[in-house]
Amino acid sequence: MENQTVNEGKAFAIISHLWLIGLIIAIFLNNSKKNSFTSFYIKQSIGINLLLIINKWLVYDMIGSFIGWAFGVVIFILWLISIIGALQGEEKTIPVIGGHFQDWFKNF
């Protein structure tokens, strides 16, 4: 990836990791001038936020708090991998499902 593209999009990519409100802000800020680096991390963040919502509504509430907590820890580790990649200026997909997030949310 071009160094200039990474430098221009790095701040918004990091903002997209600040939960749902940061994601919404990053989507709006990236909407006027599309940056491929920011778009990559917006897609990753959408997926991570969906995992959090699914974990809360399905796993934690319906299956049990211990399993929900365990999945929460896994999701937190995935979030850490993603934000570290954004901080380093590298496009790192999160393991297992990150590539699917890029396909599913290609309009962002």
Results as ranks from 00 to 15, higher is better:
M1R: 04
N7S: 09
G9N: 03
G9C: 02
K10I: 03
A13P: 00
I14Y: 06
H17D: 03
W19R: 07
G22Y: 01
G22R: 02
L23V: 03
I24P: 08
I25T: 01
I27P: 11
I27L: 01
F28A: 12
L29F: 04
L29S: 03
S32E: 10
S32L: 09
S32T: 12
K33T: 12
K34V: 14
N35C: 02
S36V: 13
T38W: 13
S39H: 04
Y41G: 10
Y41E: 07
Y41I: 03
I42Y: 08
K43G: 00
Q44A: 02
G47W: 03
G47F: 02
N49W: 10
L50K: 04
I53D: 13
I54L: 13
W57N: 15
W57G: 15
L58F: 12
L58N: 08
V59D: 02
V59T: 05
Y60M: 12
S65D: 07
F66S: 13
I67D: 00
I67R: 05
I67P: 02
A70K: 00
G72Y: 02
V73E: 07
F76W: 13
L78G: 05
I81D: 12
S82G: 04
I83D: 03
A86G: 05
L87V: 07
L87M: 13
E90M: 10
I94V: 11
I94S: 01
V96H: 02
I97A: 11
I97W: 00
G98T: 02
G98Q: 06
G99K: 14
H100Y: 07
F101L: 06
F105L: 04
N107F: 10
F108E: 11
F108M: 09
